[in-house]
Measured scan of single mutants.
Amino acid sequence: MTYKLISNGKTLKGETTTEAVDAATAEKVFKQYANDNGVDGEWTYDDATKTFTVTE
């Protein structure tokens, strides 16, 4: 399945996607992506749209 990340960081804003077997796997990928880009904030997940959002 395709999962989307919306980043509302102070230094990184935008969207990216990943293919993953489940939401937990996608979350690990996205949290590593955010960490690699210096984004640390509040996370939410919408199962209906398969979208994670991180806001700093």
Rank of each mutant, 00 (worst) to 15 (best):
residue 15 E to S: 10
residue 49 T to S: 10
residue 54 V to L: 12
residue 9 G to A: 13
residue 29 V to R: 08
residue 38 G to N: 09
residue 45 Y to L: 02
residue 25 T to L: 06
residue 8 N to E: 08
residue 21 V to N: 11
residue 41 G to Y: 04
residue 47 D to Y: 07
residue 50 K to Y: 08
residue 6 I to Y: 06
residue 54 V to G: 00
residue 47 D to R: 06
residue 9 G to C: 14
residue 36 D to Y: 07
residue 46 D to R: 03
residue 47 D to K: 08
residue 34 A to S: 04
residue 37 N to T: 05
residue 7 S to R: 05
residue 20 A to H: 02
residue 31 K to M: 09
residue 31 K to E: 04
residue 40 D to F: 15
residue 36 D to L: 11
residue 52 F to R: 00
residue 9 G to T: 15
residue 1 M to R: 11
residue 21 V to M: 12
residue 46 D to P: 00
residue 15 E to M: 12
residue 46 D to A: 03
residue 8 N to C: 14
residue 4 K to S: 06
residue 30 F to I: 01
residue 25 T to N: 07
residue 38 G to I: 04
residue 13 K to D: 07
residue 12 L to K: 07
residue 43 W to S: 00
residue 17 T to C: 13
residue 55 T to V: 10
residue 13 K to L: 12
residue 12 L to S: 08
residue 22 D to R: 01
residue 31 K to L: 07
residue 6 I to T: 05
residue 44 T to A: 10
residue 4 K to P: 03
residue 38 G to T: 04
residue 3 Y to T: 02
residue 30 F to P: 00
residue 42 E to L: 13
residue 52 F to N: 00
residue 48 A to T: 12
residue 34 A to N: 02
residue 43 W to Y: 02
residue 5 L to V: 03
residue 1 M to E: 13
residue 6 I to E: 05
residue 43 W to V: 02
residue 13 K to F: 11
residue 21 V to E: 11
residue 6 I to L: 08
residue 38 G to V: 03
residue 16 T to R: 11
residue 15 E to I: 13
residue 32 Q to H: 06
residue 37 N to V: 09
residue 1 M to C: 14
residue 11 T to C: 14
residue 8 N to H: 12
residue 31 K to F: 05
residue 18 T to Q: 05
residue 26 A to F: 00
residue 12 L to V: 10
residue 40 D to P: 03
residue 53 T to G: 02
residue 24 A to M: 10
residue 56 E to H: 08
residue 19 E to F: 15
residue 48 A to E: 13
residue 53 T to C: 09
residue 8 N to L: 13
residue 19 E to W: 15
residue 44 T to I: 08
residue 29 V to F: 15
residue 22 D to L: 03
residue 44 T to S: 13
residue 29 V to D: 04
residue 29 V to Y: 15
residue 9 G to H: 11
residue 20 A to G: 03
residue 5 L to F: 08
residue 12 L to F: 15
residue 21 V to Q: 12
residue 9 G to I: 14
residue 15 E to F: 11
residue 31 K to P: 00
residue 1 M to I: 14
residue 34 A to G: 03
residue 35 N to P: 01
residue 52 F to S: 00
residue 40 D to R: 12
residue 5 L to A: 02
residue 51 T to N: 01
residue 37 N to L: 13
residue 2 T to N: 06
residue 9 G to L: 14
residue 35 N to K: 15
residue 53 T to F: 12
residue 34 A to P: 00
residue 28 K to G: 07
residue 19 E to G: 05
residue 9 G to N: 09
residue 40 D to K: 14
residue 45 Y to M: 00
residue 50 K to G: 05
residue 45 Y to C: 02
residue 1 M to D: 14
residue 18 T to P: 00
residue 28 K to D: 05
residue 27 E to G: 06
residue 3 Y to W: 05
residue 18 T to W: 06
residue 4 K to N: 05
residue 1 M to W: 14
residue 27 E to V: 04
residue 51 T to F: 02
residue 9 G to Y: 06
residue 16 T to A: 10
residue 35 N to L: 15
residue 37 N to E: 06
residue 1 M to S: 13
residue 52 F to M: 01
residue 19 E to R: 13
residue 51 T to A: 04
residue 12 L to D: 05
residue 33 Y to V: 06
residue 40 D to W: 15
residue 27 E to P: 01
residue 25 T to Y: 06
residue 40 D to L: 13
residue 21 V to I: 13
residue 45 Y to W: 02
residue 36 D to M: 10
residue 19 E to D: 10
residue 17 T to Q: 10
